[in-house]
Amino acid sequence: MNASAFTLGRAVRLSILIFGAAIFLAPYVFMVSTAGKAQSDIFSSSLSLIPQHWSYVANFAKALTRVSMTRLLFNGVAVCALIFVFQVMIAIPCAYAMAKLKFRAARLMMVLVMLGLLVPIHATALPLYVAFDRMAVLNSYFALVAPFTISVFGIFLFLQFFRAIPDDLIHAARLDGMSELGIIGRVIVPNAWPAITAFAIFSVVAHWNDLYWPLIVVSNQTYATPPLGLLYFRAAEAGDDYGALMAATLIITTPLVAAFLLAQKRFVEGITMTGLKG
């Protein structure tokens, strides 16, 4: 970057980008601001970003005391971690087999994966709900995690990545005496970290923010994930207390924002890898 090359064109481009960024950031900024306002401030006719009476402490105290925030965050972490671990444990061997082994059902499996990509969770939600109800497993981590353990998106993503791993490397591993599981553990996984990271981002972001599925299978606060907890909080505790609600939202979004800021470079790498690069 050369600071002296600050031309008119560059200025125009930057101002467009800043404008765009401001639009996208505005709701979040507004949320941060509202989390610090007292009830009277929020409903005053004048719109200001800086709270007139600083009520951060009061709002956060409310958010932290009225719902079990640690419980929500723990549930969020546990559910996302379980989903991610199972997804990787299933998707990696599956994608390896489809990419590098020759077997008769490979084509059929490819078609099934493609079909799986086309079917959204909303289509299968009702049958799954009925099945879980019959099995009496609603309101459990199992109900939250099980439907997502097989990720066709994950299989597809790893499949693309594994296809680029040279066959000779696999052949060498076989000649060196490794079993197929050994190859996955000793050769594939250590070389697949970029793909695993990218997939982790997609998976964790999607399931941390998911409201739809927890809303269906969880009615007990003990198993509520953060977005569902917010919903309860609004309905039961906060009522019209938007200050406290925004404070709670801020707490819940913080882990993802922090994770993004820490792993910003990886995040962008992961997105670009799954996009254009073959």
């Binding site: 052949h171 060498a172 050769v187 070389n191």
Partner: peptide, 8 residues
């Protein structure tokens, strides 16, 4: 192997 196929 021609590509050596070393574990990277």
């Amino acid at each position: 192997f021609q590509s050596y196929a070393l574990y990277p």
